[in-house]
Simulated assay, not measured.
Amino acid sequence: MLGSPHIDVLLDIKTTLGEGPVWDAESQRLHWIDSADGRIFRSTHDGRELRAWDMREPIGSMAVGKDGASFLAALKSGLHRIDTSSGERELLIDPEPDLPNNRLNDGKVDRQGRFVFGSMDTLEEQPSGSLFSYSPQGQLSILDKDIVVSNGPCFSPDGKTLYFADTWTGEIWAYDYETATGKASNRRTFATVDTSSGGAADGATVDAEGYLWQALVYGGKIIRYAPDGTVDRVIETPVLKVTSLAFGGPKMDTLYATSMAKPPLPRFPEDGQQRGALFAITGLGVIGIPEPRFGA
C-alpha cells in the first residue's frame, strides 16, 4: 500500500551535477557522483562516514565491482576500473575515441553483471550518442544508436525488459532484453513524458512491484509509472533539478534522489537553496530491488 512520502535532505554537499545513486546491499553503502566535478561519493544509509574519490575528469555513472574493492566508472575518457583503496585507475576501454564532443553518461548493471551505459553530446544537441553494454569479460556491444542524451537505463524485476530514455525525445523506451546474451531488441515507447512544466526524463529505477520511478529534471517531480506505462503517482520535489533515483537503506524502502546545484548549460533554469543536495524519501510504502555489482 502506497504511503505518504517524507522528503529529507540527507547531505547538503552542493554537487554541481549530482547523479547516479547506487545502493550496494552487500556493504550497506550508498554511492553517488558529481558528474561535472568528477567525484564519487560514498556514505552510510543515513549520511555518515562520508568519503569521496576524485576522478579528475567528468563522470557519467559508476558501479561497484564484484570484489567490493573497486568501482567501474564511466569517465569522459572511457570506462575505468578504480581501486577504492589507492584511488588508482585503469582504463578498460574507450568506446568513442573518434567523438571528442561526446562523453559517457548514465549506466546500470544488469542482473547478469554487465554494465549497460550510454553516451551523450555535451551540448545536448546532436544525436551522436549510443547505448552500450560492457561485459565482465571485456566485450563491448552497441545496443542502440543516434542518441542525444542517454539517461535512465534500468531493468524490470525479471531482467527481461530494459528501460531507457533519450532525454530530449520526450519518451521513455522499453526493449526486450535477452538475459543470456545481453542483446536488446523491439524498441517501443513505454511512456510519453509530460514536458509541459519544462522537465525532461533523467535517471530512473524500478521497484519490486515492477513500477518505474523517473526523475523529471528541471520539472521538480518524480514520476512513478505502472508496468503498462500509465502514470501511477507524482511526487513534487524541493528542487527543480532532481536528477536520478535509487532505492536503498537496510530495508530497501528509502528512495534516494540526487540533484544539481548548477545547470550544465545557460538555457537551463536556476534553483532554490537546496539545489545540489542529496535527498532521502521515506514513507512510500514500496521497496526497491538490490542492484547487482559489476561482474556479479
Rank of each mutant, 00 (worst) to 15 (best):
H45F: 14
S61R: 04
S35L: 12
G78C: 10
A36H: 12
F41S: 08
A63V: 07
A74M: 05
T44M: 05
E49I: 02
A74D: 05
I59D: 03
R51G: 05
T44Y: 06
D83T: 00
D34L: 12
L72H: 03
L30C: 12
R29Q: 14
M55G: 06
A25T: 07
Q28H: 12
W53G: 02
S85R: 14
A52S: 15
S70R: 09
S35G: 15
K66H: 14
A25K: 11
R56C: 11
A69M: 08
I82L: 15
D83R: 00
L50A: 11
S61A: 15
R56P: 00
L50W: 04
S70D: 06
I33Y: 04
R56F: 09
A69W: 01
M55N: 08
A63L: 08
R48E: 15
A25I: 11
L79V: 08
R29T: 13
G38S: 10
L75Y: 01
D54S: 11
S85K: 13
E88H: 14
D67M: 08
D34H: 12
R48A: 14
Q28I: 00
H31R: 11
D67K: 08
G60D: 06
W32D: 05
R42E: 14
D54M: 04
T84A: 10
D54Q: 12
V64P: 01
D67I: 03
L72Q: 03
H45S: 15
A25L: 12
P58I: 00
S27W: 04
D67R: 10
I82V: 15
G38L: 04
D83I: 00
S86F: 02
